[in-house]
Amino acid sequence: MKSDTNLADSTPIPSISPSSNYLITNGLGNTKRSKRIATWMLFIVIIVVCSIYIDVTPYQLFVGLPEMGVLLKEMFPPDWSYLPTIWAPMLQTIKIAVAGTILGAIPAIPAALFSANNITPNKWLSLPIRTLLNLVRTVPDLLFAAIFVAVFGIGPFAGMLALLFFSFGIIAKLTYESLEAIDPGPLEAMTAVGANRIQIIVFGVIPQALPAFISYLLYTFEINIRAATVLGFVGAGGIGLLLNQSLGLFRYDRAATIIILTLAVVLIIDYTSTSIRRKLL
């Protein structure tokens, strides 16, 4: 009854908070509550110290937001006459993403097979490959791109290589996890009738893992198409180069056209890929 009246007049909110209820029922509640308060305090202190450290304060946001408004105003109306010029780079962007994803997926298959514990019981083989995959996944795609641009020169090839490495890391990881979750029944049956390793993989493992693999391929492709649109910022080909140029020349109307086209392409590919993935699984 008491909590009912509290709810009605709404002022003494803390008295009916779940933590205080907990306090009554449980003797340990007190320490737990103070621990929770301490955690939140620590968290707030961290945030404040961080914002002072890099000089990011709400005041700056207040000053910066009108600038953002000016920028957006200059972007409209977008320069639609620029559209024919950006078709070719847009296609190149898609090509980079496709080639990078598929070329990354091919080496991912053996890597996944070798790092799945139920297919390769040999720890000395699976552990180094897993470590390599973990290392590859810590490096963001744009960093790969920046490095490959330095090695192979400016152009889409560097971007494709960057996405190749990136896709390899993701697809191999996701695939070996789903490989470890496959039904062991068929594999045991095939071992019992004397199939060799390759036969087991071809007839027992691949049919079970293929839908998941293709789904991961598409998922990585979705990530890669987003990545490919910005690869040009570091000189790795695609539409990003033009976007960077138009922003550098203060042609915000052109930049807006590029951004809108990018969004449209990404949305269409996302939608298609997601609906295919839903059918697959």
């Binding site: 700056q60 000053v63 910066g64 937001l65 600038e67 953002m68 000016v70 920028l71 744009l142 987003r226 990545a227 649109t229 910005v230 910022f233 990003g240 976007l243 960077n244 922003l247 951004i259 990018t262 969004l263 990404v266 949305l267 996302d270």
Partner: peptide, 19 residues
């Protein structure tokens, strides 16, 4: 989903132009 399709690099570049 519209916010999600914006690559963060593009968002970053816009904010660099602004602030």
């Amino acid at each position: 989903s519209v916010i999600r399709v914006f690559p963060e690099m593009i968002v970053a570049i816009l904010f660099i132009k602004a602030v």
